[in-house]
Amino acid sequence: MDRGKEMRLLEALRGGSEKAFESVYRKHRAVFLNFGRKYGLNDHDLLDIYQEAYIVFYQNVASGKLQELKSSIGTYILAIGKNKIREHLRKTGRLVYADTILDNQTEEESVFDGEEETPTERQRILAHQFALLGKKCQEVLKWFYYQGYDIATIRKKGNYSSDNVVKSQKSRCLKTLKERMR
């Protein structure tokens, strides 16, 4: 696929397109499963790993962390997935396979090294309290703290009348959250 098309797909994903979310997921699924089977993993485990890798990829796009691709989307997802396969093999004691994957790791893949961080207690409680906030509050905080949108973008997306209204809304929501955390 040409680079322009892939960049448009990234933009669609960042914009929240359900169609792009599903089509990218389906497009790379079979290649990943075929790749993973070489390491003796069953399809059920591989599908879980693929989904985890896809979620990491998608979250990197949604949060703005991934804005430009040095390689294709498929390579990016595969790179994340390879590290997840390695983690899985290590956890299940199949170190030989794990080392094989590790030895063949490219420079690009090393970007995705390491296991996902375990959430702290405060992050877990915050996650729960966040889910109990009203829809508007969830929306504005998600746009700012998760998707990295600036205030002007949030004003447009949320149809707010001014930047100051966005700032007040954000600060009210933060205050509510902090009070609930006490």
């Binding site: 979310f21 992050q123 996650a127 998600k142």
Partner: peptide, 23 residues
Amino acid sequence: EYDLGKAIALNERKRLKVKLEAL
């Protein structure tokens, strides 16, 4: 605010997992 960003990402991961399972 850093923890809040991580917390929202945590919720999103779960929401996305449900979506993928539905797919």
